[in-house]
Design a protein around this nucleic acid. Structure first.
Lengths: 233, 233
DNA sequence: TAGATTGTTAATCGATTAACAATC
DNA sequence: TAGATTGTTAATCGATTAACAATC
């Protein structure tokens, strides 16, 4: 430890893998806190998540010196620090675009609210949905996005529209100056580098699971022979 | 190309990142196919997804030799090959456990069905939900899982229950011999290594997006000064 | 043929893990 | 003090990219 109370926030952008794990650390620290614990070691935190202890220390060290040699990490303090470095120590007003089955489920998803994420405006392209109320919020036409985003300083959009309209809606999101998109549409969005996108394709996740199940050494009966009519290329 | 029609399927487990990208290649190839294309090069496929062309070739080469020098990849054939290596050239009967807002949305999610994933049985712990019908399927008590799984050879479970019961439900899934779990509960599951888990934590995705937005060099006004009361550790 | 594009090797880059002095 | 645990360096491991002979 070179110097004692330094916190290098914002110096370098953390790698994607680090940020994802830090989100998990935060989630698990809150579990420990609810259980009445006050400190935790990197090895115990890692074990609860299936992550190597050196990895835990290195990930946390990326954002500052939070630990105490011989003791571990003070849970309450670390939670506050991680919330700060992740940027979730504030409110994030969100526009939800697309009120299909998935969109409506996301609207009611409790965990978002608990994290400071609050859906404050709804949009859809379907004329039948526009004007309806969901969870106390009116559904607006996408054309109103610019106006609403400006007046409420919305900076995140959750996109749950069909794939074939996702790019055109994304273009409008970008045009409004909204700098972040959580994309549930199963398509890759082209956006300027100043706009951040996190993509969640539920089918891809399930496909990945299928691959893992088929390729995990086990007693699982692989009916591959039923399909191997294909030969060569 | 050492020897001409080899297909090393099942030799080594592909890295996670490779599998995820291959799922995206497949998704994009189907787009090209719908547009009436018959071949595509690694550079064009990569460009449409923001992936380096050498990466595309290397990922595909992991599973076999599918391309033709000077021509590219024949789309229809490659789609079939990738479906096969991913294991989605068959039906996957699925148990959906937890019929909250998210679970009900997943039940109606069209893209699963199109990929061969079919939800064939519903389970919940809430006595008020048990016996109700959703989408033509009755909600069963979790105690019936073993029986139903055995009779229908279910091999994937989608878990959308609250975090505090997720582990105990996962234990029952494992006990039934179901080898794959898609976990939407915001908690890490402890399962034997013979069981595959893919975790999707929607809050973590949104947190990651918030981090990216705050740390992308841009005109985005960072109100961090409102929060920096914290000092030291 | 000339141009295009693959599969693969080598080079680069980044991420993970082991080890340990410093610290409490 | 002895034991525990950090932050960090060095070693390992794996993933990405550039380059190019082989091929169509």
């Amino acid at each position: 430890m070179k110097d004692s109370r330094r916190e290098p926030s914002g110096e370098k952008l953390a790698p994607k893998a680090v940020v994802n794990r830090v989100c998990l650390y935060l989630r698990q620290l809150e579990v420990f806190q609810r259980q009445g614990e006050s400190t935790v070691s990197s090895s115990r935190l890692g074990a609860s998540l299936g992550i190597n202890d050196a990895q835990v220390r290195k990930d946390l060290a990326f954002f500052g010196q939070f630990g105490y040699p011989g003791i571990g990490y003070r849970i309450e303090g670390l939670i506050g620090k991680l919330r700060h470095v992740l940027g979730i120590d504030r409110d994030w007003p969100i526009a939800l675009i697309g009120l299909g089955n998935l969109g409506r489920a996301l609207l009611k998803y409790k965990h978002f609210r608990r994290r400071g994420f609050q859906i404050v405006a709804l949009f859809d392209i379907d004329p039948h949905k526009i004007g309806q109320m969901y969870d106390g919020l009116p559904v607006r036409a996408i054309g109103e996005l610019a106006e609403v985003a400006a007046s409420r300083t919305i900076n995140l959009a959750v996109l749950s529209v069909p794939a074939d309209v996702a790019q055109s809606v994304a273009d409008q999101i970008v045009a409004c100056g909204i700098p972040g998109i959580l994309n549930f549409a199963p398509t890759t969005l082209a956006v300027p580098s100043s706009v951040s996108v996190v993509a969640v394709d539920l089918s891809v996740q399930l496909e990945h699971l299928a691959y893992k199940v088929l390729n995990t050494q086990s007693a699982f009966p692989d009916p591959a022979h039923l399909f191997d009519g294909a030969s060569g290329r």
